[in-house]
Amino acid sequence: MPTEVRPASPDQARLLRELLDAGLLISSGVPGVYGHGEAFERVREGLDELLSREARERGAIKLRFPPVLPRHQLESTGYLGNFPHLAGSIFSFEGTEAQAAEQAERAASHEDWSEFQSQTEVTLMPAACYPVYPAIAARGRLAPGGVFVDAGGSWVFRHEPSLDPARRQIFHQHELVRIGEPAAVLEWRAEWAQRGLELLRSFGLDAHLDTANDPFFGRRGRMLAANQRAADLKLELLVPIAGPEPTACASFNHHLEHFGQTFGIELADGTTAHTACLGFGHERIVLALLRTHGLDPEAWPAALRSRLWDRLA
C-alpha cells in the first residue's frame, strides 16, 4: 500500500511552485525528492563550507561517510524501535534467470516486483551522525577532553512524502558531533545552540530556539517524546519558511550515554562517554534564505552573498 502523502498548506504549495518555476528545485515526480538548480546549489555549498569552517576553527576534525549505513549498525542503535516509519532499507535482486526475466517484465509494466528482492547489508542513512560513533569507538579510549567531529553535509533519508517543500525525503544534514565527558558535552551543546542561533540571525533569518522532541512512532513514541522534552534533550532552531508553523532548520541533541554505551566509546578514565550532535538542515536553511531575501540569490544583500559564496569564486 503506498504511503499517504502529507498535504501542503496553500503557502507551502505556492512556495514549491515558485521554486520549481524559478529552476531552484527540479521535480523528480516523487513528493519530497528534488534536484537542485545551480543557484540553489551554490548557496547550499556556501553554507556547507561556512559550517565546516566554523567547526574547524573550534577544533573539529573532519570525517566523511557515504549515505548508506551498515544494517547491523542501524539495528544496534534502536532506530527501528523508535522510527520504524521513517527508515529506508536497501533491497536487491536475488534469484534465478527466470525470476530476473519475470521481474524485468513486471517492472516494465510497473507491476509489483518486490517478491524478487532480498534485504542487503546496507540501509539508507537515517541521520548523518550515526557512522561517527563506531568510527570513534574503533580508535580506542578517548584522550582527555574527548573529540569534536565535523561529519559534513551528508545525504540522509526519511520516508515521509510531503508536498511541503521544506519536508523532504532526502536532504543534506550537516552534523557536528561532540563525544566526551558529560559536563563538556552539555556545555558544548549549549554553546553551539547559541552559536547556531546567532549564525541564522546574522543571515537575516527570524530564528528562535525552542525545546523539541523527535517524531517517535506510536504510543511508545508519545511517552518517549514526553520524556525527551521533560529532560530537555532536544533543542531546535525554528525559522518561518512557509506557514502556518515555523520550520526546524537545526536541532541540538543530547544523547547522554546512549551511543557511548551502544558502541563502547570510553573516556580516558575508562567510563562511558556522553555524546551530543547538532544537525543543520542545508536545504531548509537555503529555503529560509530564499523566502526571506527573495528567489534570486544574486539580488541578496552583498554582505550575505560574500559570506556564503562570493568567497568561493
Binding site: R219, R220, R222, M223, L224, N227, A230
Partner: peptide, 24 residues
C-alpha cells in the same frame, strides 16, 4: 519507562490515555 507503561497496561488490563503518556 515505556516498557513499564506497557507492562502496567497488561498487568492491570487498562490502557493509559494519551494525556497520561508523560514522564510525571
Amino acid at each position: 519507562s515505556v516498557n513499564v507503561m506497557l507492562a502496567l497496561e497488561d498487568a492491570f488490563d487498562i490502557e493509559f490515555p494519551d494525556a497520561m503518556l508523560r514522564r510525571s
